[in-house]
Nucleic acid binder design. Structure first.
Lengths: 204, 204, 204, 204
DNA sequence: TATGAATGAGAGTTCATTCAT
DNA sequence: TATGAATGAACTCTCATTCAT
């Protein structure tokens, strides 16, 4: 049982990497089988089809990128501090699941895909609700003014990060040559503080 | 002569739409041939291969999205006004070339692609140089402080927009139901002013 | 013990139906396993292979379609009456084993099949021997003349019936709409009397 | 043009033989490609799919097995003579298209096939109409009585023949060992006269 | 220059069977 | 004895490309 589950998970892990690196269409099940060191028939055997494999990966990972209110909103913080935690946690989710977000963004561009984005939007809305709560508190505290809608605010949190990873090679030259670690550190140390600053400016 | 050029252009136009909608790999030359009402052999004949067709499309369009300093920096404006013009013009380029940017972002995610991004980065750097000049003037005028690097600033201009179009369906519900026109209008009327506000805040 | 035998029989029953409806090649062991509510591995386990399963089904059913002299030839009947009983009994066997005969005829067409027809021909010859006896008696009684060979006679008994079931849908419209029962009744009431009439005419 | 048509026809000819010998499902497009000395991709290229190839073969051959009234009914013949010509012509069509009829009978057994038999029944009905006309004349001439329906009569013409070819190996021993020619001769010389005799007996 | 015909390679999937327990 | 897991082989079909004219 667990043996089977191990292989299933292995296939999904390897597939996610390949899908994110080469795209779904450009990745063949033969490549997945080779990377996972399994027989090509196993993909159909376990998942039914390549498309179902994709769907299962997305469904799985959507659960992982959910934020939890208890980790973000603290009673002894003011709303600005909570907003800071929200942004840091959100970006951290992205950093920890870069491959998945790459895949997700590829898929979001494609119109014809079975994955319509609906399930992703549910998670997006869930996270947005927490942000909503923080901003509402901030307004009550007199710290924020409600200027743009929540969804627009969210674009200013996630957008700069997405732009960064989409242009990873471009920014690598700017940050430090080479390693992924230094790139992630640059995001945490330079990008995130500016995202926080920018976001607060929009709420003032 | 011009007849041939017409067909070449037609193929590129139709390909761009298909590539942006379905992705490069998922688009077959048969689909392109059908959409362009030409023989399948023509794509290889004209462009050498499907991959070369993609490269030519990208090379062509990169020229189109270049900004020109004379359209943006005016002597009788202060730097904040120029920055505003820069942002508006840049986003307008995006809006006018949505299909191309969709394709570009798909391709940027893919590691193995022949298209390395180099040529794109040249254009990106060209546009960045204009922004650089505006900010330098602003600092000289005492309006701006150089806090983050230019490249980071650029992420805050383009990022929110990218986030918007990637989640087009998500935001459609928020903006107005349906038409592409209303979506673009929302970008111009709501998103862009906030981008301007956010960017300036980072420079203060 | 009997439990195992039950499953074996179940598999054979379900297989016969599927083979006759879809053909041997077009029936997968997965379909059989599903229809029989057993594990896929069971077919190979019990029968060795799909082909052996087919052979066993045919071997089994060949026993069922054997006629017995004692049921057909009665001393107090004349040969014409015995011939009538022979034909009725033979066709009744067909009606009672429609699925099997469908399968048999499919297989007889195929040249390359392992099932060579030899075993079937043994049964066919067995039944023919009874017919032979009846006709011989008829000649002795002065009722029949031996015109065509026995085998040719048999073709005029079985042939019209085979033609009927092969064109079942065609004849359904002619007979009565729909049910299998009404179709079988038509065979018994209309076809069989004509077969008898035709056969006797050939022997006169 | 003709070159292409030649290959198309070659593929259909070879496919018909293979289908009739091994069955549709058991024949792979590789086997067809090899027998036709063409690339396997050609089957899809020319016919769309293996199934469409089958359909085209059936459609083609259905045209060939049509009888023409002018070849059968002559004014200076009586109805019995015309019936004799009808039977001879019909069986001759079968003999000339044995492979096709083998295939047809395989397909008629299968329920799930796309080929539903409808088109075949149209041809069957067409030929039946000619028989109908002959019998009607025969009744008018006082030669025949209308006993069973036309469709039943047809079963007594075609049935014995079908039974013969289905049990070809069985009857080979009876006729002459071996060659197809001697088998066909046996049908013409022995079977057909008996079919005529049997049919007339049913009409008296 | 232009194109219908043709091709080899590879795609995803399903097959009957065997393995390990 | 019984079965879920796993496999290699084969399946049909589509791919981008090239050939022949």
């Amino acid at each position: 049982m667990t043996h089977k589950e191990d292989k299933r998970e292995l296939i999904k892990d390897k597939s996610l990497i390949l899908f994110s690196e080469r795209g779904f269409e450009a990745t063949s099940i033969r490549q997945i089988a080779q990377a996972s060191n399994i027989n090509i028939a196993m993909i159909s055997y376990y998942f039914g089809s390549k498309e179902h494999l994709l769907e299962e990966i997305i469904k799985d990972k959507l659960g992982v990128i959910k934020l939890y209110e208890k980790d973000i909103i603290f009673n002894n913080n003011n709303s600005e501090q909570n907003l800071e935690i929200f942004i840091k946690n959100l970006i951290e989710k992205f950093i920890q699941n870069t491959a998945f977000y790459n895949l997700l963004h590829s898929e979001l561009v494609i119109k014809q895909r079975v994955f319509s984005g609906e399930t992703y939007y549910t998670v997006k809305q869930h996270n947005e609700a927490i942000l909503q709560k923080i901003i509402a508190s901030g307004i009550a505290e007199g710290l924020f003014r409600l200027t743009p809608t929540i969804s627009v605010i969210q674009a200013f949190i996630i957008g700069p990060y997405i732009n960064f990873i989409l242009n990873r090679r471009y920014y690598s030259n700017i940050a430090e040559p080479g390693t992924d670690d230094s790139f992630d550190r640059y995001i945490r140390d330079v990008l995130v503080p500016n995202i926080i600053k920018s976001t607060i400016s929009l709420l003032k």
